[in-house]
Amino acid sequence: MLRKYSNSRTLKDNVKLGALTAFSAGMVNIASLMIFFSFSSNVTGHYTILASEIILGNYYQIAVVFGWIFLFFFGGFVSNMIVIHFNNKSKYLAHATPVAIEIICLLTVGFYGQYFYQDTLAETEILLSLMVFAMGLQNGLTASISNSAVKTTHLTGTTTDLGVLFAMFTKSKYRNNKELRGKALLLSTIASAYISGAVSAGFVYAHIGFRLFYIVSIFLVIVIFYDFYKISFRRYVSLHRFKKPVALKRELR
């Protein structure tokens, strides 16, 4: 899921990455809406709200909403910085680090929410900031490593592309195009995973509250360790079967 970069990624890689990260994003977004009455994974709405707050002259709200938009941008910035600067050293580590930071952010929200949350507006703004930053990191990473094929935190583009694709499928030459069918599969998977994550989180939140963020983190840990396991497993096999060890360093690249 995380080892391969850009055009070397297969449809299967993108579908797996898209499904797991979209499921997590759906969970985070519904959690932020239920707890804090604000979205964390889609910023289009925040841009609209920013415009309306500017019209109303609510400077405090302008600063808060602008801060959230900036943090989503900054998440994407940090993600891509890590990817492009560390890709030549270790692809896996360069791609796994933003997910690890995202996990730290979400665990912080879960832990603080479970033990210290007093329900104040300042806490709402700060915890939501962490979630928005985490979503920016995730979206920046998936878009960066998949050549913008996988974007999982919001579905505006996905829904538009699905509409375009399904219109194209009314013609047999497009229907039989393997690449377009693959794209439709990927986008449908992302949309389904996102809604599944959101619905399941909505039900689960009522029972477990802030501990929901630990579950989201487990999904992201799977994303990280799926490739780590594969790398370790391959190394183990090559060491024991062929007696010609493939250097972990080379494999990690």
């Binding site: 009455f37 709200i49 507006l121």
Partner: peptide, 21 residues
């Protein structure tokens, strides 16, 4: 009483558990 979101939601919780937004 609590204020939520970007400061745009007033949440009122009554002692019987009822909540109004």
């Amino acid at each position: 009483w609590r204020i939520k979101g970007r400061g745009h939601i007033l949440q009122i919780r009554y002692l019987d558990g009822l909540q109004e937004n």
